[in-house]
């Protein structure tokens, strides 16, 4: 599956109304640990067609960051049926993320 780009405009349809578990990576282009998180997220997206995986650029989607209480990046949310089931902050391994599914 391709990695998706979530924004304030598509978040409701693509994340909250999704029929599969969703992994959301809140990142910024200038954040060191986010650059290391990115390939891990890409790898999950490539391997798991049973999940929806995408990223939110906090610079361009500050309202989303505020709404989900993101105060540290990277922050990764695991959502099911529109609800946040797990939140990780800081660089997080693939095993830890998939363990929350």
């Amino acid at each position: 599956m391709d990695i998706r780009e979530f924004t304030q405009d598509n978040f409701e349809n693509e994340v909250l109304k999704a029929d599969k578990p969703v992994i959301v990576d809140f990142f910024a282009t200038w954040c060191g640990p986010c650059k290391m998180q990115s390939p891990i997220i890409d790898e999950i997206a490539g391997e798991r067609s049973d999940l929806i995986v995408g990223k939110v650029d906090v610079d361009e989607n500050q309202d989303l960051a505020v709404k989900y209480g993101v105060m540290s990046i990277p922050t990764i949310l695991v959502l099911k049926n529109g609800e946040v089931k797990k939140t990780f902050t800081g660089l997080t391994s693939k095993e830890d993320i998939l363990g929350a599914i």
Binding site: C31, G32, M71, S72, G90
Partner: peptide, 14 residues
């Protein structure tokens, strides 16, 4: 991650 951070460059933005 909810107000406590270990990286000023990363999280100062918030």
């Amino acid at each position: 991650g909810r107000g406590i951070s270990y990286c000023a460059i990363c999280d100062g933005f918030f």
